[in-house]
Design a binder for these strands. Structure first.
Length: 103
DNA sequence: ATCGCGGCTGAGT
DNA sequence: CACTCAGCCGCGA
């Protein structure tokens, strides 16, 4: 467990319902240039329910990945959160992004 | 300690 | 506009 990982979990847990964020933003908060590490952390996240990785998407607006290729669960959750997902893409993506720091 | 892969992103072809 | 290549951090073998 690294400090960066803890920071990632903390940030993600701060994401309000109906909002999402991107790997890049998180990586930026960590001060690193590797968003992949973030994905790795989310994937290996110790607290699945406490770490809404489903609220983390790619900068492209896509859901990115999930537990393998089972996007359906992620999509369902996002829809429950009030986020519409079409073709693995976030509807009004840019309008739902939650920036931890002013942007 | 080293190598390789991963839920990525950006620039280039 | 779609695909490819390279960069980088974290984790597993």
């Amino acid at each position: 467990m690294t400090e960066n990982a803890l920071t990632v979990y903390n940030l993600i847990k701060e994401i309000p319902k109906g909002k999402i964020t991107t790997y890049k933003i998180i990586a930026n908060k960590l001060g690193i240039k590797s968003f992949r590490a973030v994905g790795q952390i989310l994937k290996r996240n110790p607290d699945a329910p406490a770490t809404p990785c489903h609220r983390v998407v790619k900068t492209s607006g896509e859901l990115g990945g999930y537990a393998g290729k089972n996007f359906q669960d992620k999509i369902l959750i996002l829809k429950t959160e009030g986020i519409e997902v079409i073709n693995n893409k976030i509807k009004n993506f840019s309008d739902k992004i939650h920036y931890f720091n002013e942007r």
